[in-house]
């Protein structure tokens, strides 16, 4: 089942495309890349434990610059994952997003945030195994990784689809906020928000791929 196609950019047997569905995802990712470029970071208010006092936390300029670079790169990688018509490229972009997400978190010089970044890093690394295994099984069983050709020919094993889904859940680390919410000690918008944007868009894209191939 393939959504109606709006644009195609062929590269040999790899045909990159935008459907109505991926077009919406593309637009959304582009808006958040723009927001990462033009927004200044928030200044989180922190309550002083056991008192009525509070403090205002400023984000240092060098940290903001680094996080902005990572967030923009993450947004561009997300756009790459959305428009690609090749499963291997998709897995590469997904792994790239995972690494950049870690970069956004690990830039913060706070032991709690760094501890969270370490845990996220382990999950992301483990996520690459099923991710690339899924793509490898598809290549081995069908002889192609072009989504366009797979949509026409079919025959993708269910196990490969499942591995691809598990891999994406590992790379898009937003769900792991549940276990390691220390990320909240870092400034949120607009850079930490990019983690959630990229995770969700990656998930939405893999859903489309799994329903297509």
């Amino acid at each position: 089942m393939m959504e109606s196609i709006l644009v195609t950019i062929p590269f040999g047997d790899m045909i990159h495309y935008l459907s109505g569905y991926t077009g919406v995802l593309f637009g959304f990712a582009a808006v958040f890349v723009l927001l990462a470029v033009i927004s200044l970071p928030e200044k989180p208010v922190e309550i002083v434990f056991g008192t009525d006092g509070y403090s205002l936390k400023e984000t240092p300029v060098d940290l903001a610059k680094f996080q902005r670079f990572m967030a923009i790169a993450c947004g561009i990688a997300t756009i790459g994952a959305i428009v690609t018509g090749d499963i291997f490229n998709f897995t590469l972009f997904a792994a790239f997003i995972g690494v950049l997400n870690i970069g956004i978190v690990a830039a913060v010089k706070n032991k709690h945030v760094l501890s969270a970044a370490f845990s996220y890093g382990l999950v992301v690394m483990m996520g690459t195994v099923p991710l690339f295994a899924g793509a490898a099984i598809i290549a081995a069983t069908t002889g192609t990784l072009s989504i366009w050709e797979l949509a026409a020919a079919g025959g993708v094993p269910v196990i490969a689809k499942l591995l691809l889904l598990i891999g994406v859940l590992g790379e898009g680390m937003a769900p792991f906020y549940i276990g390691k919410a220390e990320i909240t000690r870092a400034s949120g918008a607009p850079y930490i928000l990019m983690i959630h944007v990229s995770s969700l868009l990656l998930f939405l894209r893999v859903v489309e791929i799994l329903l297509t191939v």
């Binding site: 959504e3 959304f28 928030e42 200044k43 989180p44 922190e46 949120g188 928000l193 859903v207």
Partner: peptide, 25 residues
């Protein structure tokens, strides 16, 4: 229906972004 599903998921980002953008705990 897949697009409606996508819009619903994107609403998560709206909730998340609304909360993260203000600076309030």
């Amino acid at each position: 229906l897949l697009l409606i599903f996508a819009f619903y998921m994107l609403h998560k980002i709206v909730e998340h972004g609304t909360g993260l953008s203000s600076g309030s705990p």
